[in-house]
Amino acid sequence: MSEISPTTEIVVCLKWVFQVNEPSDARFAGMSPADHAALELALQCAEHIGGEVTAVTVGPLAADTVLREALACGVAHAVRIDAPTATDSADVATMIASTADKASWIWCGDYSTDNGSGSVPSFLAADLQARQALGVINVSFEGEGVSATRRIDGGRREVLDVRAPAVISVEGATARLRRASLAALRTAATAAIDVVTPATPIRTTQHTVHTYRPRARALAAPSASDALDRVRALTMSGATATAQHDVETLAPADAAARIVDALRDWGYL
């Protein structure tokens, strides 16, 4: 386990993703908000604990854009592992681990907007035998360590004392990415990017794609106490079942009026 030193290695994992609303338009592709936050915290980590930040992405040539953005924001090195972004998460982690094996701190987004397994950070921690703090919503740097608050069930939160080596994955709102200076932006545009061809074979799970439709859902038994609720629970379909109502297309004004009427009918107004 590497001890903290001025030469601490800090790695940030950045994924090049298409925007959900522009699923096939590379012009809109880039980092997710979570990765933006991870990048900012990696840079802050270097400022507090010392060391240099390396940005790593597993993706095609086009993914260089996220690395250039990272370089413009102040990371020291950029590495692209040349494999499809659709590579299985376990393998993505292995590939990153092979370049980040000396890293003390590894920052990730808590999940990627396309794949969204949230599993790469945890695989990384397993590969590197590092500690993990995932789904973090608040970070403070304390001496050589990090205090991280993560969401747990039922709206509760857990505060972790994290020591290196560790993988920390953060939500998008945890930090706002700094704005690159004009000079940095210009040098980043032509800065060198190390391209690594993965040692491990590239696997991508075969699958067929369908539009998501809620699964027919077993209705939870009425847990509610008061009689009314019980009746409702028994008669109403749950949030993930489909309600049998037709869709109305209305102008905003009419829509608002329609809503108010409905609220009256239902007795909320």
């Binding site: 109502h245 869709v247 209305l250 829509a255 329609r258």
Partner: peptide, 19 residues
């Protein structure tokens, strides 16, 4: 929209103004 008891196709922002 499938889950909704009242599903309205409209601009949410303008609807919010109106509401």
């Amino acid at each position: 929209m499938q889950l909704a008891d009242l599903a309205i196709v409209s601009d949410a922002n303008e609807t919010i103004d109106a509401l």
